[in-house]
Amino acid sequence: MPEDLLPNQLLTARGLEAGYPGKQILFGVDLAVAPAEVVVLLGANGSGKSTALNTLSGFVRPWAGSIRFEGAEIAGRPPHRIFRRGIVQVSQARDLFPDLTVEDNLRLGAWARGGAVDALAEDVFRSFPRLAERRRQMVRLMSGGEQQMVAIGRALMGRPKLLLLDEPSGGLAPVFVKEIAAIIAELKRRAIAMVIVEQNIKLALSIADRFLILRDGRVTQRQDIRAGAADEQDIVRSIYL
């Protein structure tokens, strides 16, 4: 049994099969996340990384397999129910409310889970001073990097137990990639468990506790890198060759 399928995990997915009408994408993926752990999914385009995340968050219904989160089966449940359990996704498209202000976007992040909305928002603004300056600005008028911050900040408003980040550095200017990396590192210090899909391998390895390599919908390699750094060249080879 792979070590990440041991009990006492926050989330355990087994034998996940999923896809879209007429095309299967995942062929039996096993994945587990321990509390406060950061797991990175690597893989070439089309290897099923995003589908795996979307299956965990409920936007894609698995065809087979189980997903247990804090002991409860959540496979096939609708996204809003999974969200309420504390799994919050920041999708690749960031999916913000473009015509609303930064502040309103954040507040809507707390819509379902409630809590002290103002305090949560102030907390986000403290972590993202750049957003605090622009709190009344419409999100559509912001740069990609700022929008990514709004998306992550909004996810935090839902007080996530497990945060799913889909290509957080995707399409961002190098300055912002650094900033986002710092933000993720900070979230890790706060012991928020994360599953991250990331193309930027350097960034991915700098924050990961473990990584999985997906290939054509199957996990081909998994490695714990807490003990020692993995060889970047090696990983690139096993992803693409």
Binding site: F59, F83, R84, F97, R113
Partner: peptide
């Protein structure tokens, strides 16, 4: 109310609304 906020979220981005836990 919450209802109105949910309407507003759905209007602006239905997918994002669902991702924020709103039963659209």
């Amino acid at each position: 109310s919450r209802f109105g906020r949910a309407f507003m979220a759905i209007k602006d981005n239905e997918l994002a609304a669902a991702a924020m836990g709103i039963p659209t």
